[in-house]
Nucleic acid binder design. Structure first.
Lengths: 181, 181
DNA sequence: CTAACTGCAAACCATTTGCATCATT
DNA sequence: AATGATGCAAATGGTTTGCAGTTAG
């Protein structure tokens, strides 16, 4: 299953900072830290790429945390989001929300191939500036932006028909983080 | 409930064109038009503002179509989308997809107030051009874009605290179509 | 006539919640 | 000790599906 690779010192430290951040949020609300909570947060911070709740649970089980229950993970999601550890990643396509670690990582948006499901991250200063401007023009103070572009990637266009391959639902598509330029 | 206002001739004709468009899609797939199907499409085209499946069903009932079943509406959604009659409007927040008529209407995106739920439409050529450019840069042929900005509207910022009012889920928020500039 | 469509009820599935019990502060 | 956190199972709620009967082409 997913791999808990070597714990590069840097990454381990980032995780430690993330956990501290979470503790702050908890303290601020008179909530408690717990071993399960910590394991979940640790897993979320360490997870490479996008994940769903059940992915995280599997990862936890694989990591030796025997009883990490779905319900518990669900209950900790809002806290981790508030602490800035994770973020919803893609616009849900019917099969559950996908998250990604966001702690000490810069904002980015996604391009998604409607053919093979490939996801590419990109970042555009121009885009963000434009979004702020649009919000301001309408009297809004921007808090969050959802931006996802969909189309056919090079490979799918070259290879294929104009319609996405049939019967390909819940395709745990491959992800290519970071891309050209 | 929702109002089926006077049938301005222009609107009635647009609906007729929409239905023709739907017939084309149906014919192309060897599917059949039916009275129920037509009533559903008609309702979707006539509906003012955003709606959910159950809104449409209520609207249909109110319009005298006694047995317009949810399942049937669900089954016709993909067809209506393919025919370009409707489109998913907002990014689902947990409580079901929201649609809006899109036939012979120009693309637009939404700004959503995290305080009161107010939704404002806006349109930006610059933004669309930028999106196409980003897609192209990554070898994608753009097919669709999801873009939603969230923040606090003028009124909410003036009026209020920094956190959205508690316990305000499934708020059928008011919508202000079309806005300044 | 045949293939699609429709109502209805049951099935699905991601997410939420109630409750008794365990752990942190 | 007191208040939260957790596992588990049951409840939710939007959406999908199987089936038997109806209807369009």
């Amino acid at each position: 299953m997913g791999g808990d690779r070597r714990g590069s010192a840097a990454k381990e430290q980032a995780i430690a900072r993330g956990l501290d951040r979470l503790r702050e949020v908890l303290r601020a609300r008179n909530l408690k830290m717990s071993s399960v909570r910590e394991a979940i947060a640790r897993a979320a911070l360490a997870y490479e790429g996008h994940f769903r709740v059940d992915d995280l649970v599997r990862y936890l089980h694989a990591s030796g945390v025997r009883e990490a229950h779905m319900a518990t993970v669900y209950r900790s999601l809002p806290l981790m989001i508030e602490a800035g550890l994770i973020q919803p990643a893609l616009v849900p396509n019917g099969d559950g929300q996908v998250y990604e670690a966001s702690f000490e990582r810069e904002r980015h948006d996604h391009l998604r191939c409607t053919g093979c499901g490939l996801v590419v991250e990109y970042k555009s200063e121009t885009l963000e500036a434009l979004q702020r401007e649009i919000a301001a023009r309408h009297g809004f103070e921007l808090e969050e932006q959802v931006h996802e572009l969909r189309g056919r990637c090079r490979k799918c266009r070259r290879a294929g028909a104009s319609t996405p391959p049939p019967g390909s639902r819940r395709s745990r598509a491959r992800t290519a983080e970071r891309s050209p330029r």
